[in-house]
């Protein structure tokens, strides 16, 4: 087994854990923000509980995988691979006593560096965000109180009354009508980058 093999195991477990942890965090955040059509459960309180369960479950999964998945965290210090805490250990499942050190593997030996986390975390989080919009749209597909009416660019504020699937097309259509004004508001003459507004005025939307 090489650091590449160890890295592959880490990557799989890390992506799964961060995906579910992000699902949980978004449920908690959306519940505090009152964005009810992003929630998976009917009430804000139950959504927070679900969010906490998802976060704790993700952490539990990541740190207990070595109990049943063989890896560089075997209890026997012997000829094998450089694994937990830089020890040369047998490729095996972890014991309970070594469990919390099982994931402490240097990046040169197959663990994750900060840079790797900086790449893979946004990927897992992005997938979780997309999943949240899709799942919540299915969960609330018949619960919208009113037909979606999107005449302003207030984004997820609309998800308080309608699902993302109902809102996104109308929201983007509204943007197509108003994008020049939206851009102009940010780059108006007198403000910083005012010259960009002049450029935008020259561009014709096709």
């Amino acid at each position: 087994m090489t650091p590449q093999d160890i890295g592959d195991i880490f990557l799989r477990d890390y992506l799964i854990a961060m995906y579910f942890a992000t699902l949980g965090v978004v449920q908690i955040g959306a519940s505090y923000g009152g964005i009810t059509h992003m929630l998976f459960l009917p009430s804000e309180r139950s959504s927070r509980a679900l969010g906490m369960l998802l976060i704790l479950g993700a952490a539990l999964f990541f740190f207990t995988v070595p109990l049943w998945q063989g890896g560089p965290w075997g209890a026997v210090v012997a000829d094998g691979v450089i694994g937990r805490e830089g020890l040369t250990v047998a490729w095996d499942t972890s014991s309970w006593s070594d469990l919390t050190s099982a994931r402490n593997i240097n990046d040169v030996d197959g663990g994750f560096s900060g840079g790797s986390q900086g790449i893979w975390f946004p990927l897992a989080a992005g997938l979780a965000l997309i999943s949240t919009y899709l799942i919540s749209s299915v969960v609330h597909r018949s619960s919208s109180r009113t037909a979606a009416d999107v005449n302003d660019n207030s984004g997820i504020e609309h998800l308080k009354t309608n699902t993302w699937a109902e809102v996104v097309r109308l929201s983007f259509a509204n943007w197509r009508r108003s994008w020049r004004g939206e851009v102009g508001d940010e780059f108006a003459p007198g403000l910083k980058w005012g010259g960009v507004r002049w450029l935008v005025a020259k561009v014709r939307f096709r």
Binding site: Y133, N153, G155, I156, W164, V168
Partner: peptide, 13 residues
């Protein structure tokens, strides 16, 4: 600010 406005257009911010 413009990036956030674009994200709002897709109802994700």
């Amino acid at each position: 600010n413009l990036a956030l406005r674009v994200a709002r257009a897709f109802a994700v911010a």
